[in-house]
Amino acid sequence: MAARPPCGSVAEPSCPAHGLSTNSSLIGGQRIMSKAKAKAKQVKGKMKETTGKAMDDEGMQVEGRGEQIVGKTQETADKAAGRVKRTGR
């Protein structure tokens, strides 16, 4: 009997024993990337806001707060999409 490739590999992308399926692993990877980008945008915004405060640049502060809001909105939307996918609706 031939040895099976490890579950989750390219040759064996799904493994019911470990709860892996082709679709869920791909979607999970996309969600992680999306979450990372949203967090990065929040951090970038916070840095911009802090720099604006240090330089007494109100425009930069506002721009930084805006980026933080966009990042938080993206993160919230991603969480909602994940919940919808998990419920199957």
Rank of each mutant, 00 (worst) to 15 (best):
E75F: 02
T76G: 00
G71F: 01
M60R: 05
K48R: 09
A2T: 11
R89E: 00
A17M: 15
K35G: 08
G66K: 14
S9Q: 03
A54V: 10
E67P: 08
T22G: 13
S34F: 03
M33H: 01
V70D: 07
K37P: 01
A81L: 07
K37H: 06
Q42A: 15
R4M: 06
A54Q: 13
E12I: 13
M1N: 09
K39W: 04
K39Y: 10
S24C: 05
K46T: 04
M33L: 02
G64K: 08
R4G: 02
A38P: 01
E12C: 14
K37E: 04
I27S: 13
G28C: 10
E49D: 09
S9P: 03
P16E: 10
P6N: 07
L20D: 10
G29M: 07
K41I: 12
L26K: 13
G8L: 02
K35W: 05
P16A: 13
G64S: 07
G88E: 02
E63D: 12
G82E: 00
T50C: 05
A17I: 15
E67C: 14
A2H: 08
G88S: 01
S9I: 02
Q61P: 02
A40I: 03
I32Q: 11
T50W: 03
A80Q: 01
T73I: 01
K53Q: 11
P13R: 08
A36C: 03
S34E: 02
G64Q: 08
A2S: 12
